[in-house]
Nucleic acid binder design. Structure first.
Length: 505
RNA sequence: GGGCCCGUAGCUCAGUCGGCAGAGCAGGCGGCUCUUAACCGCAAGGUCAGGGGUUCGAGCCCCCUCGGGCCCGCCA
């Protein structure tokens, strides 16, 4: 038993419906038949897919009583047909039809099972493969075993669970009602595995660094704040992994990555969740070109796996097509100039930039640094034009205070962002490793903006003074990557248990 | 934080002009040995999100609250 997760526990239906009373009375009946409704295990089961495969090798109408199979899963529907019935059994491998016949199960058992089983029950079936006269791959059941009686009825068998609130709050119902939803979340896990494989294969070490920190830094965001009773000190939940991983570079771990939850005390909307899964990777002695190559390979692989797992879903097909190489490269400045018609945009004064930003309706403070205005212009003119997965590279230095200066382009930094359908998937730099410059920029950040800014992490600067190798680093939003691959329009579609308000009253 | 929309049976949804609360699925009873959203017949199932108001009369109109969705603003 894993630790209970909080959050979605929520108060749920207190009064039982008459349907539930009916099912409870069936439990009593079953017990009077000396059938335990909640037994301990069901050994020897095979996936339903295996039986379906065996049945598919038979002729229509043929049955093969030689081999016996044990399958288990959730009963989805029962089509009673007098002295023969058909039931659909769903397990993780798929759906298998059970053929229930009084002449095979025995008249008494047949009648008893039909009256005491309901859709939603977890059952085991023991029998042999057969193909019905209508050609359906089936298991002809010699006996049935109740494994868990469901008291609450499942969602409607055809339409499933549609109510968005219920889908989120009671994701288990959404999952049990929809093979498609189950596949999407399975895909999410596989994408994470694929990411691990890519970084492992490139010689990276997966590490785990603190989530609870004295001060959350490494990004500009509002942290969640908590309190340690032991220390009697305030702690903050991390908003980024960056500074922990860079400390590891100082310590001589040359290639490290972490996949983990980060927390930002901000709104939930279509592309933001207060807790989200971030991949960050840091690579000593390499630069952002190396990371980009690694990423391009990774994208091809996850897109292929996505198509494999979810063929024939048009929106998924359209989404994965965006991950087909080559991936366009957009120079930040050139693409902005082309899209906006503004020439020499990087040379404009702050005042000119502010006017341009105001003209497109950007609502940022007047005293913002030039990079903020450039970002706004880019968001307005260029981002909406990005559909295919694309790399935006070499941003003006003023937009990116914490990246290393570009080695050849004046006024730029070595950075790329990956975009898909106008939202950002990832962000990579050739990292700063001059401790004095790091400290200076931290301080500039502090004075530049208000509350949501980089907290000053003195120990991190101290670490860098011992020497951090030249390195490149990247952050990828795993939730967004999954969204992009599935063509999902809301981050809630890729989070098993998105944040919801506690139910009151 | 601002705007718009939604909440009816366990689930999926109708509900017209303010006039008896409806259907399908699921469940109950009966029928059916090839169905697959099985089908046929009968009966049952409601705090119309919650609270207040208008009205002879409110699921429907008005106000408040709760929850959700979408758009905008901010962060990835």
């Amino acid at each position: 038993m894993s630790p209970a997760h909080s959050g979605c526990a929520g108060p749920m239906p207190s009064e039982e419906s008459s349907l539930e009373a009916e099912r409870r009375s069936k439990i009593e009946r079953l017990r009077s038949r000396r059938i335990e409704p909640y037994p301990h295990s069901f050994p020897g089961r095979v996936p339903t897919r295996e039986v379906a495969a065996a049945a598919s090798r038979l002729a229509v109408g043929e049955e093969s009583a030689h081999a016996e199979y044990r399958v288990a899963g959730r009963l989805r529907s029962v089509r009673t047909h007098g002295r023969a019935s058909f039931a659909d059994l769903v397990d993780q491998s798929g759906t298998l039809q059970l053929v229930l016949r009084s002449d095979v199960l025995g008249d008494e058992a047949y009648a008893a099972w039909l009256s005491d089983l309901d859709p939603g029950d977890i059952i085991g079936a023991i029998g042999y493969a057969g193909r019905t006269r209508r050609g359906e791959n089936s298991l002809v059941a010699r006996s049935l075993v109740l494994l868990a009686k469901a008291i609450s009825p499942p969602p409607e068998k055809y339409h499933g669970l549609k109510d968005e609130e219920q889908r989120i709050r009671r994701r288990y119902l959404d999952l049990l009602a929809s093979e498609d939803v189950r596949r999407r979340f399975r895909l999410r896990s596989e994408i994470v595995q694929e990411v691990r494989r890519a970084f492992d294969a490139a010689g990276f070490l997966e590490v785990e660094t603190p989530i609870l920190l004295p001060v959350a830094s490494g990004a500009a965001a509002a942290p969640f704040v908590t309190h340690s009773r032991y220390l009697d000190e305030e702690l903050q939940l991390r908003i980024a992994i960056e500074l922990s991983l860079k400390r590891l570079l100082v310590g001589g771990l040359e290639r490290v990555y972490e996949i983990g939850r980060c927390f930002r005390n901000e709104d939930l909307d279509a592309t933001h969740s207060p807790e989200f899964t971030m991949l960050e990777a840091y690579w000593a002695y390499a630069d952002y070109h190396d990371l980009r190559r690694l990423l391009e390979d990774l994208f091809e692989r996850v897109a292929a796996r996505t198509q494999e797992l979810m063929p024939n879903v048009p929106e998924v097909r359209a989404a994965t097509d965006r991950f087909r190489p080559p991936f366009p490269t957009l120079d930040f400045v050139e693409s902005l100039e082309r899209a906006s018609g503004i020439s020499r945009v990087a040379d404009l004064s702050v005042d000119e930039l502010r006017l341009r930003a105001r003209a497109i309706g950007a609502t940022v403070p007047d005293d913002s640094p030039p990079g903020i205005f450039l970002d706004k212009l880019f968001e307005h003119y260029v981002e909406p034009t990005i559909d295919h997965v694309s790399f935006v590279i070499d941003h003006p230095a003023s937009t990116t205070p914490l990246a290393k200066r570009h080695r050849s382009k004046a006024g730029r930094v070595e950075r790329f962002e990956v975009f898909c359908r106008s939202f950002e998937l990832g962000n990579a730099y050739t990292e700063l490793n001059d401790p004095d410059e790091q400290e200076r920029r931290f301080r500039e950040q502090l004075s530049a903006r208000g509350e949501d800014t980089y907290a000053y992490d003195a120990d991190f600067v101290a670490a860098m003074r011992y020497g951090m190798p030249p390195a490149t680093g990247i952050g990828i939003g795993i939730d967004r990557l999954v969204m992009a691959l599935l063509g999902a329009t809301s981050i809630k579609d890729v989070l098993l248990f998105p944040q919801t308000r506690a139910r009151s009253g």
